[in-house]
Amino acid sequence: MKVKYMNSDSVAMCRRNAKKIYDDVICSNKKSLHELFDDESIIKSMSLEIKEFKLKCSGENKLQEDIYNVKAVYESMQGLTDSQASEEKLWAAYTLSEQLDYMKKRWPATNEQAVCTKYLFGYGPHRSLFRNGMSRLWWIGRVTKDDSYSDPYELTQFVCTHTDVIQFICEQPVCQQYNVMHGVLKALYDLDKAYMAEEESGIPDKDRKGVKVGKIIIQQTGKYMNLLSGTYLLDLYEEEKIYNMAKSYIIKLNKKMQKK
């Protein structure tokens, strides 16, 4: 199957007609996108071939299904360049047509605003990559896949089950650099994994080395990296150095939080 896209005029038209799309295409199922605009060729095909993929959305365990869907989309569409995958017109073809059923179940729209934020690119160019219902699957795969693990999607699983990481780490400009992103992700992941293992073994709190990674830890780590990037050009650092910096910060922060 070929990669689908819309031209940018069609995307602009969808944005302008978000209310109609919300009413007729998403809520009432009265019309498909091409029926709404009387245009059989509104969805176009690139020459790039991809493997067919089917997304899961039973609604029972959204986060686990997200992991499956990230792998499905990224594996299937790995042939896209970063530049192509950053195009709203590509993902709009999937959210509004090719994967409309998935979108309705995974991101039920409650108003026309959702058409702009989840079906199109409704934020800045970088943030939108992780907010659009379909592009987020590709980009989470892109920034978390790590071949140094026996399962290259180990970090993906961590990110999909700790969704604050997407907002506070993946969307941070400083973390766009691969070494920074992976150094921070691995520090969070390793500390969380250690905590889970210690929890299972019943190790007393005072002897634990792991950290339960929750929203505050993730948010503060993102802020800390941003703060550091004000003085240091972190892009120059090896992943290991970033890992150690992030890890020691998280441990200190956790101790501080425990004292309170």
């Binding site: 970063d82 530049s83 950053s86 800045g124 970088h126 400009p173 766009q176 650099q177 892009d235 120059l236």
Partner: peptide, 15 residues
């Protein structure tokens, strides 16, 4: 001397 290239739209950032 470092030349930093950044494109937010493609998550590209390199020194």
């Amino acid at each position: 001397i470092g030349c930093h290239v950044e494109c937010k739209q493609t998550c590209f950032r390199k020194m």
